[in-house]
Nucleic acid binder design. Structure first.
Lengths: 212, 212
DNA sequence: GTCTATAGAATGATAGAC
DNA sequence: GTCTATCATTCTATAGAC
């Protein structure tokens, strides 16, 4: 349900990039990942066990190894999926780069990022806090993470005044707001309400307080 | 070594608030906690096991139950110890509340807090991120946490302009800097170098950009 | 207080039949 | 591909001898 891909009704027989078997395999993989998200949503990120996961999709635990080589591979697929969702949720970069449109974009991107993080605490933990003992994302998954980051801060890069150090300030301030919201007022808006203010503050700081 | 209390050479026989047995008991407790810090420093917060911990102090695991009722009680004692260390590390509140001294205090307090967090990632995880599945601090420990927080932001409360919402901004920005430093440049100073800048930015935001 | 022994329950992962 | 059976660990916690 959550991330299930809706397959098109007809498949093109002239372009079978995947065999029926392979397609079925991928579908089951997707189903397993959806079930995994459900479980971490309920039991927390570290509460995921292969037995529970298999039961959720009507399997026994060893059968999962036909689809993933290890538990960490499942986490890795979730990691990649999470950043792909972040990519989908980020707003389009504006064509014109007037200060006005860029400022509006910054507000939009910041609030969307905030909501994206807060919507799924387990995903936030997986993507941004390194909380699973042995886990490190694979190079492919890391590539997606970098792509999502670049896209999210892409609007700010359009400002010629904004340096890399400035971007560090942006990410720190916004992720800090997210963490406080999740830790100290989960489900509320105590920090979310201040996001526009933070964006204004950061714009003033990184663009210079007044344009000449 | 790390947090070991250095007992005074002579004990006062007229004020035996603790019997020798009780003192020895407390000393062993402290020794266990020191060993626990060593282990989480090396293996991460969740890497702490009672077997390892007991071995570190030359015991077997069940013997620990003479000193702590459960593993969570050990975490709780570490939690309390961590916030006590934070209290000790926070600078003294200035007597006079001129703007100048308060600004200096804000800089001092922010940088000390940052260094305190970054110095021990496992401690940071225990105190600020809720990462251990079932753990919640006891009321007594939580009291220490609140006390440390109040003391850390106490200097800012001296400014009459600073509201509770402003304090939320301060904590979010500073903890965000810490998290980014730990996650993306551990051992470095990429975010630390910008702490003074963040303090200035927050002062300008929460005090008003210019005083009349 | 400390030990041995062990309960009791999880876990991730593998072997091999079907 | 899926299953049963099981390995091999790890863990917290308890019982009871000394």
């Amino acid at each position: 349900m959550t991330t299930g891909s809706s397959p098109s009704g007809t498949d093109s027989p002239t372009a079978p990039s995947e065999s029926r078997r392979a397609r079925r395999h991928d579908a089951t993989r997707a189903e397993i990942l959806d079930a995994a998200w459900q479980i971490v949503r309920r039991d927390g990120l570290t509460g995921l066990s292969l037995r529970d996961l298999a039961a959720q999709v009507g399997m026994r635990a060893p059968s999962l190894y036909s689809y993933f080589g290890s538990k960490h591979e499942i986490y890795d697929a979730m990691f990649r999926q999470g950043y792909q969702q972040m990519l989908l949720g980020s707003p389009e970069l504006p064509e014109d780069t007037t200060e006005e449109t860029l400022v509006a974009f910054a507000h939009e991107a910041a609030l969307r990022f905030f909501d994206f993080c807060v919507a799924e605490p387990a995903r936030h933990q997986l993507l941004f806090l390194r909380t699973i003992p042995g886990f490190e994302p694979s190079p492919e998954s890391y590539r997606v993470a970098v792509e999502a980051y670049d896209r999210t801060v892409g609007g700010l890069r359009r400002f010629p005044q904004v340096s890399d150090a400035d971007l560090d300030l942006w990410t720190a301030a916004l992720t800090g707001m997210v963490s406080q919201q999740l830790a100290n007022d989960p489900g509320g808006t105590r920090w979310r309400d201040q996001v526009p203010r933070v964006v204004e503050m950061l714009l003033a700081e990184t663009l210079g307080t007044s344009q000449p």
